[in-house]
């Protein structure tokens, strides 16, 4: 898989230029992340390495990986021996190094609150729920296929309420899902946007929602539908035995959602 191969050669021709002078005053958390992002995109993102915003290039993706803060500090500062990943602690001024670390942490959902110091760490259950929410092995039933949380996932259906328990999560009401009729074809549909001429809506017939762009005059949209949240959850294969999300799994996901979503 050569397109993801290491930036063995390119890295060494990228010379870090301290174009952004070290900060004169301590930066607030948001400023520090912003500054770290600028530094990152001029250096770490370049030359087939981690890609703009850390979404991967020749070197691994950094965004949304669930990397631990201590690990990020260690690797950015000391590098990884015998790989192209350099020890930036030897090159970057201290404030810049801190900014890059803060930025990479932010890509993994680790941010400092402006006034209250570091955000409280997620509980073990919440971290387990987070892993399940974005679990690659959950495949077609994965939560993040339709829901964007902490800036990660597809924003097809924003979470408006956090259900109280696993059972109500399976049967959660979806009042926004209606029924569309287009040229004789009737299907469950979720409205995305509409102008006088054009309507964009998701066809929820198959497990992967299809965003359709249609002439408004061709579409009849009514309230209520046959669509069920449980039918999507049945497509998950998260556990080692290939079964769907269990009630315990859903409970852990709910702990995660309560910890990170402020409705």
């Amino acid at each position: 898989m050569t397109r993801t191969l290491m930036c063995l050669f390119g890295l060494f021709i990228v010379l870090f230029r301290p174009a952004l002078a070290s900060a004169q005053r301590p930066l607030g958390p948001a400023e520090e992340i912003k500054r770290g992002g600028e530094l990152f995109n001029r250096t770490c993102a370049q030359s087939y390495c981690h890609g703009a915003n850390g979404v991967a290039g020749g070197a691994p993706r950094l965004t949304g990986r669930g990397l631990e803060g201590g690990y990020i500090e260690r690797v950015v500062t000391y590098g990884i021996g015998n790989t192209p990943m350099p020890a930036w602690g030897q090159t970057l001024p201290g404030a810049d190094l801190a900014a890059v670390i803060a930025y990479v942490k932010s890509l993994n959902g680790i941010t400092k609150s402006a006034d209250a110091g570091p955000a409280p760490p997620l509980s073990t259950d919440a971290m387990h729920g987070r892993d399940l929410f974005y679990d690659p092995a959950a495949e077609l039933g994965r939560c993040s296929n339709c829901h964007r949380v902490n800036g990660r996932g597809l924003n097809i259906a924003p979470i408006k309420t956090v259900p109280s328990d696993a059972a109500s999560m399976r049967t959660v009401a979806a009042p926004d899902v209606g029924t569309a009729t287009v040229k004789g074809d009737t299907f469950p549909a979720l409205l995305d946007s509409q102008t006088r001429e054009t309507i964009r809506l998701y066809d929820l017939t198959s497990v992967r929602p299809v965003l359709l762009t249609l002439a408004s005059s061709d579409v009849k949209l009514t309230q209520g539908s046959s669509w069920k949240h449980s039918s999507v959850l049945e497509e998950s294969h998260s556990n080692a035995d290939g079964k769907n999300y269990s009630d315990d799994d859903l409970d852990a996901i709910l702990v995660f959602l309560r910890a990170v979503i402020q409705l």
Binding site: T63, G64, Y134, R142, S144, N145, R152, G153, L154, I156, D203, R208, P209, V210, L211, L212, T213
Partner: peptide, 9 residues
Amino acid sequence: WKVAVDDAS
């Protein structure tokens, strides 16, 4: 039409 084959993240 446009469909997400998967969550790219």
